[in-house]
Design a protein around this nucleic acid. Sequence first.
DNA 1: TACATACTTCGACTAATATCAAATGATATT
DNA 2: AATATCATTTGATATTAGTCGAAGTATGTA
Lengths: 226, 226
Amino acid sequence: MKDGPDLSRIASLVGDPARANMLSALMSGTALTASELALEAGVSLPTASSHLAKLSEGGLVTVASQGRHRYYALAGSEVAAMLEAISGVAASVGPKRVRPGPRDGAMREARICYDHLAGEKGVALFDHLTQKRLLKASGQDAALTAKGRAWFSDFGIDIAALEGRRRPLCRACLDWSVRRSHLAGSLGAAALDRMFALNWARRESGSRVVRFTPKGRAEFERLIRA
Amino acid sequence: MKDGPDLSRIASLVGDPARANMLSALMSGTALTASELALEAGVSLPTASSHLAKLSEGGLVTVASQGRHRYYALAGSEVAAMLEAISGVAASVGPKRVRPGPRDGAMREARICYDHLAGEKGVALFDHLTQKRLLKASGQDAALTAKGRAWFSDFGIDIAALEGRRRPLCRACLDWSVRRSHLAGSLGAAALDRMFALNWARRESGSRVVRFTPKGRAEFERLIRA
DNA sequence: TACATACTTCGACTAATATCAAATGATATT
DNA sequence: AATATCATTTGATATTAGTCGAAGTATGTA
């Protein structure tokens, strides 16, 4: 039938285990060097380089040369959304999860999705926002209400500064672990940054896990109960 | 890192051109036989059969034997949503669309997405519903308001009958051609059925295109202007 | 200039898989 | 029963694509 865009070209890029591992690693939102990605994928440097060339050629990742390093990153939040969608199917038709190890538990509670908070914590925040009518979501689009702007200002986020940019302020991103939405967009990124700044949580190095401090957990609870 | 579910397993299933064509064809929502899918994919019957076995094994399609035919269909709306997400990336990083032929134009205006209406018409309906507060959408989830229930009843849809089933009533599905959401779920399917019953539109055989009649176009306009 | 680090390209090997013809199995029609 | 249709299985082939060692390029450091 040949309708629509070429599915298989994109899908086959994700279809190789080494490349899928690299993309998964890049879901952390941080740009990584070719060596780091090689390690992540468990392949040699030349192999990784070849894969990265394909991903780059295919438009799934971007590359930025900085000195003798080359930093690779996901090409955009659309790519991230696609990866989450595939993860969702993979989880549902699934590999009969043998045993959800402790790492999986932590990932499910809170993790980085590209550059914002995902997992149960992320979904809880999103639910609070929509329920209290601070955020009006419609499909993948979302918009702050007047009350919502005030709420985020109280939280210490300068919304006006974010609105200047090309990137949409609010976005709803579907969560593979919980099957519900969490807040993405520049506001989602800013919210996570703020939590890091407040020392509510910190990133676990070398993974997507976001680990909340006891104090942070309590403060977060208060935030979404208020 | 090996986190989350196995991306590459699912992606590689979509990554073969023959299989991708089959899945695209199944996006029409109708179940198709192995022979039809072989034709669609441009491969021999044995080859198609082998691909279908893989897709079935992988959980992307279901099969129902009926006499000497075996009808294949997408395993669920989750799979359909994933395919749309991949299409979205494919369209955006894109194949530099040479020339959007007439068929592409018709597909963009109105097409079947699994079993509901997609394209500009589908998005227009969804926008109307949320704007008039007939539907409350939050991420991928959506729910009818009281006003919304009345509205759909007026349109001739028995909502109570739909609610009995396991399938969610309302769902927001992201549209690759327009990059916005349209109405999915059992209600989305019922709405499209109703339009067919009212003779507002009919399917173009052998494609996903939904072609509106002049009368149907006018009635549809009135419906979402009211 | 010499040397080290980060990465890519080249070349050869290997493994995986898409492909179809022919045979087999299963179901309907006569 | 005999025959025709639809589909899967088998087996054999060919192409693709992932893999890494070795060599080459580019950038930073001594």
